[in-house]
Simulated assay, not measured.
Amino acid sequence: MANDKDKDKVKFLYQDGETVLCYHGPLLYEAKCVRSETRNKAPHYLIHYSGWNKSWDEWVTCPRVLKYNEENLKKQQELLATHGTSKIASKIKSNSRKHVNSMLEKNADLEKLTQEERENKKKKQKVEDSNELIDNYKVQSEIAIKIPQELQKILLDDFENISNNKSIKEILDEYTNFKLEKKFDKNIITEIVEGIKDYFDTAILCRLLYKSEKSQYNELTKNSTKKPNEIYGCVHLLRLLGNFVHFLTIK
């Protein structure tokens, strides 16, 4: 808790008891500055949202609070038009006087009830308030994000690589069958393909894996009877082919 001496050193834009507008999610709500304090050498305000249960009171900093004036009320309506719903709109459009009158009416009704009935009514109202605010949060949390086509293509390629990922052995076996259908010499094709598989199994640990992948390699091969070309897929085959191109370019 800051003392009065600390408070004097910090400039407070809002006075205790002042009506303000405060951000809660993407919207601005009418609220009251209940109390102000200096925390970490910065002004903090205890905010009570008009018409909300006190359990929603919170300490906020300056960026979330705005003066209650015509300009900021217009901004409130613009945000409401963009992000709001009819349920939220009815709450925001109710001014503080209506909230106060409503509260007074409820208090008057409560006075006529027995103690047990008052407690039950308060509990019921608290649950209704909480459910309404939860519904509001669900609506406010829906944010539309437009993903550019270039990024969508990357996501689709990633999906294809993960969902339809074949092992190097399967890819090379398909290549062999394709070449044999084209009447290529079986012995030559088989020798080339088997040579690529053998080279991959030999080179993968020392030439084709990033440092962070080597521990994964140890886990994958530790208790497996499969060869690396039966475990790894097209991405690592491309690394091998890129390695060939680099080697041939140097030569």
Rank of each mutant, 00 (worst) to 15 (best):
R118I: 00
C22I: 03
L113Y: 06
V235I: 12
N72R: 06
T176Q: 12
L27E: 01
F159L: 07
V34S: 02
Q149F: 09
K74T: 09
C22Y: 07
Q77I: 08
I189R: 02
H83V: 01
N165Q: 11
E119L: 14
E78A: 15
L110M: 14
S215A: 14
A42E: 01
H24I: 04
Y199E: 08
K41M: 03
E150C: 08
E174V: 11
V235D: 03
L104A: 08
E116K: 14
I154Q: 12
E105H: 14
K112T: 04
T249F: 09
K222F: 06
K67Y: 03
Y49N: 00
N101M: 11
I171T: 05
L156S: 10
K7Y: 07
Y137T: 05
K146Y: 08
T190H: 12
D16A: 15
K7W: 04
V60I: 08
Y210P: 00
T225I: 10
W59I: 04
I88S: 00
V65W: 08
K122E: 02
N107P: 05
R118K: 09
I189S: 04
N131Y: 08
L80V: 02
L238K: 13
Q125N: 03
Y199F: 13
Y45N: 00
K93C: 02
I143S: 04
Y68F: 15
I143N: 07
R97P: 00
R239F: 06
L113A: 07
F200D: 01
C234R: 11
S215E: 11
R118D: 00
E105T: 13
E119A: 15
E111K: 15
I231P: 07
M1L: 13
N107L: 15
R39P: 02
K222H: 07
K197R: 15
Y175F: 14
Q149V: 14
L133E: 02
T114Y: 07
I92S: 01
Y137E: 03
K75I: 04
L220I: 06
N53D: 14
G233L: 08
E128Y: 08
N107F: 14
E70V: 14
P148I: 05
L240F: 15
I162A: 06
C33V: 09
R207N: 11
G233R: 05
E128V: 12
K222G: 03
K153V: 10
D57H: 05
E150T: 10
R35P: 00
K138T: 01
N218S: 15
T190A: 12
L80K: 01
M103L: 12
F184P: 01
K186A: 15
Y14S: 04
